[in-house]
């Protein structure tokens, strides 16, 4: 896939970082404001998709990028599962037990393990959306090349 014009490239350059930061904000504040791991993860994936669409697929080496996103995705779901399993070791020994101290309601560091779940689920969602997009792009390029 070819890149777009200079105007689109420049605008993307200015906007993509802000979109990425907004996704991180939505993920980290998931236990305080509307949003959370799923919505923020998709926004983070959107910033990468914006870059790839504007600059064309030669800009980043896509197959290497795809390997990285697959690893990130599997790591995210594995870590979330590990935190859930850790609840069976500590405290009252229940799967998905909230084993960290809860803190004051409404502060950024509070709610025990819920922010950690948000971060890892956001990581997993962002990487999986990006992986599907990259798989479709690589498939299209391989088809046109043959």
């Amino acid at each position: 896939m070819k890149g777009m014009t200079l105007i689109v490239k420049k605008t993307t350059q200015l906007i993509a970082g802000i979109v990425f930061l907004y996704g991180i904000y939505i993920i980290v504040h998931g236990h305080l404001t509307p949003g959370g791991g799923f919505a923020g993860g998709v926004i983070v994936a959107g910033s990468f998709i914006l870059l790839i669409l504007a600059y064309g697929s030669d800009f980043m080496h896509l197959t290497r990028e795809e390997t990285g996103s697959t690893i990130t995705e599997n790591l995210g779901i594995l870590l979330a599962l590990m935190i859930a399993l850790a609840g069976m070791i500590t405290g009252i020994k229940v799967f998905f037990f909230n084993w960290l101290p809860h803190g004051t309601v409404g502060e950024l560091v509070s709610a025990g393990v819920i922010p950690l779940y948000n971060i890892f689920v956001g990581m997993e969602v962002a990487a999986s959306i990006l992986t599907i997009f990259l798989a479709l792009l690589i498939f299209k390029e391989e088809v046109t090349k043959w």
Binding site: G30, H31, T33, G36, N98, H102, V113, I114
Partner: peptide, 14 residues
């Protein structure tokens, strides 16, 4: 019970 100000996140993760 969950310490989460956002009720929806508290329900889906706890």
């Amino acid at each position: 019970k969950t310490g989460s100000a956002n009720l929806v996140t508290g329900v889906i993760f706890d």
